[in-house]
Amino acid sequence: MAHPDSPPALALGGIAKHYGYVKALDGVDFHVNAGEIVSLLGDNGAGKSTLLKVMSGAHAPSEGTIRIDGKLVTKYTPSVASDLGVEMVYQDLALVDTLDISTNLQLGREPLRPFPLSLFGFVDFGKMHKATRTQLDKLGVRTAPPERAVEMLSGGQRQVTAISRAAVRLFERGGGVILMDEPTAALGYEQTLMVEALIKRMAAAGFAIVLVTHNLPLCLNVSDRIVVLNRGRKVADVMRAQADHNKIVSWITGADRAEEAVA
């Protein structure tokens, strides 16, 4: 966990997002600390996907501020977010099925063979596989050999690979923020447990994690804090101990008063 006096790894202040006359987000404050898992919940159309896109730099907010490690960021784009240590794991995973695990994890940063072969772009696959094993060992990931093609992996193994890729990119920085969009969608029970365990290990390693999910058991199992949106507004921001299944459903549906739920 972060030091009590440390600024949040990622903080949004007064975020609003308008699409013409439609207000998708209305004055949302949000933050996540290093080593913390925050689940972002809400019904379809509540604004959680829009907020996640603002966090990743894919959508520019109409109003509000974005701070990384306490520093105000302007002109926030996906490339800027990545440079500052914010990585997004998309629901479609964005993996290259025909390539192996190592290449997917190192895509764009592949180690090259010694000179003069490096001049022709020859990849040092031995070095790449060794580096991948070391990186996955740090995460406690041993689901498949680094040489195995992604198209041969199960759904859970693919999801773990996509999450591991984001974590590997942040290892060099010593930490960062990982945004996850429905990481257990369409996964079975055992595969969900595999992803759940990885999320907990990454938080223990100091990563700040934002989890968008409809899976309430997953949310209750891994979250340190829970944030709920309803019609573009934040209606709950509570520690896990203050929430249970019934309360979360009441916040999502709007049955509970917002001011009573926000910590």
Results as ranks from 00 to 15, higher is better:
Pro183Cys: 05
Arg109Asp: 03
Glu196Gly: 15
Arg231Val: 03
Thr74Cys: 01
Arg109His: 13
Tyr90His: 15
Ala243Arg: 08
Gly70Tyr: 01
Asn215Trp: 11
Arg201His: 10
Tyr90Ser: 12
Ser164Tyr: 12
Asn104Ser: 03
Asp244Ala: 09
Val177Lys: 06
Asp100Ala: 02
Gln91Ser: 08
Phe120Val: 14
Glu151Asn: 14
Thr103Ala: 15
Lys130Gly: 08
Tyr189Ile: 03
Gly206His: 08
Met239Leu: 04
Asn230Phe: 09
Gly126Asp: 14
Ala81Tyr: 10
Tyr90Lys: 10
Asp92Ile: 05
Leu25Tyr: 13
Gln106Ser: 11
Ala167Val: 01
Asp83Leu: 12
Tyr189Met: 04
Arg201Val: 08
Lys17Thr: 14
Ala261Met: 02
Ala58Glu: 07
Ala94Gly: 03
Glu260Lys: 14
Ile37Phe: 04
Leu117Val: 13
Thr213His: 15
Arg169Ser: 14
Ser250Lys: 11
Ser102Gly: 15
Lys138Gln: 11
Tyr76Met: 02
Asp124Phe: 04
Val141Thr: 01
Leu170Phe: 10
Ala149Ile: 00
Thr143Gln: 10
Asn230Asp: 05
His31Glu: 13
Thr184Ser: 13
Pro114Lys: 13
Thr253Phe: 01
Ile15Glu: 09
Ala236Thr: 03
Tyr21Cys: 04
Glu259Lys: 05
His129Asn: 09
His214Gln: 15
Ala60Lys: 11
Gly176Leu: 07
Gly155His: 08
Met55Ile: 09
Phe171Gly: 01
His245Val: 02
Arg148Asp: 07
Gly42Lys: 02
Lys17Phe: 15
Leu25Lys: 10
Phe115Ala: 05
Met194Ala: 10
